[in-house]
């Protein structure tokens, strides 16, 4: 398993649209992706669960990738967060 932490810079936090884009992206990968903030976590393919985490601007989240080509998935997630969130 590989992971990285990221601090959200989007003023709206992970709101509906980026959450949707995130899910779309995760589905393209061959690794299992988990979004974690403190105790709470959600699978990267589960839109409403991610939205329900209510991740806001300046929140620190960690993103874990497991299985498949982990390095490629990690890079793809990093790029996605930096560009969209």
């Amino acid at each position: 398993m590989l992971s990285f932490t990221y601090t959200i810079t989007d003023e709206m936090g992970i709101h509906a649209r980026p959450a949707g884009l995130l899910v779309k992206k995760v589905k393209e990968l061959d690794s299992k992706v988990t979004i974690r903030r403190g105790e709470a976590s959600a699978e990267g393919t589960r839109l409403m669960a991610i939205m329900a985490m209510g991740i806001k601007c300046k929140d620190e989240v960690s993103i874990e990738v497991e299985g498949g080509d982990e390095e490629a998935s990690l890079a793809a997630m990093k790029a996605f967060f930096e560009e969209n969130l």
Partner: peptide
């Protein structure tokens, strides 16, 4: 219009 894109995605939500 983006909200309807979100609706489409919600429709595909696995938990739902």
């Amino acid at each position: 219009a983006a909200i309807f894109e979100v609706h489409q995605m919600m429709l595909e939500d696995l938990d739902y």
